[in-house]
């Protein structure tokens, strides 16, 4: 049986076990990189750099991890804040640009596939992208997302509702609305 996250964390803290840390990275790298790709609007190189930074911050902060939350919840929190810090550092706006990304509504009629939805998700503001990814792709509960993103539970719920409304509008050819 493979070691639990908690057991691996304990080995890293107790004896700086790099093998245990490598197992943690291997176990969670795909989820973290996919999450950051979603936030970075599929900028693969940027997402990989931020994912590396996330795991290094995780290593440096492992002694502060108390195990009250799941390791993944804590890890996504680090990833989210790492992305936000990077975003602040770049002076680029986070607003969707029609010139860059094109319109999604006019490419669909009533058949909605994953690619359409992925493109539409890119139009959402970063926080809503994070909430949608953690909920639908990572299967996290509302409470876990609230804990990971350090946001009130109500904000998570309203982000999901509003995000759904926007996606439905964009993907079924409704009127375009400026993203906030």
């Amino acid at each position: 049986m493979s070691d639990s996250d908690t057991a691996l964390v304990a080995r890293v803290i107790a004896s700086d076990d790099r093998g245990a840390f490598e197992l943690l990275v291997r176990r969670h790298q795909s989820a973290v990189r996919n999450f950051l790709r979603r936030l970075a609007r599929n900028d693969v190189e940027r997402a990989n750099d931020l994912a590396q930074e996330t795991f290094i911050k995780m290593y440096q902060g492992l002694h502060t991890y108390r195990g009250s939350a799941k390791l993944t919840t804590w890890l996504f929190r680090i990833a989210y804040h790492t992305f936000l810090n990077d975003q602040r550092g770049r002076q680029a706006t986070d607003e969707f640009s029609e010139d860059e990304h094109g319109s999604v509504a006019d490419t669909t009629a009533h058949t909605t596939d994953t690619l359409d939805v992925d493109r539409a998700l890119e139009r959402l503001p970063v926080r809503q992208r994070a909430v949608f990814d953690l909920h639908y792709k990572k299967g996290m509960t509302h409470s876990e997302i609230a804990e990971a993103l350090e946001l009130p539970l109500g904000t998570i719920k309203s982000d999901l509702v509003r995000g759904h409304e926007k996606l439905k509008e964009w993907l079924t050819g409704g009127t375009h609305e400026q993203t906030a």
Binding site: R18, F21, E22, V25, R26, Q29, S30, R33, N34, N48, A51, Q52, F55, I56, Y59
Partner: peptide, 15 residues
């Protein structure tokens, strides 16, 4: 799922 490729090795090298 994304293949690890050299990702984990790169993280470990930067520790």
């Amino acid at each position: 799922p994304l293949a690890d490729d050299e990702f984990s090795a790169n993280v470990l090298a930067r520790l």
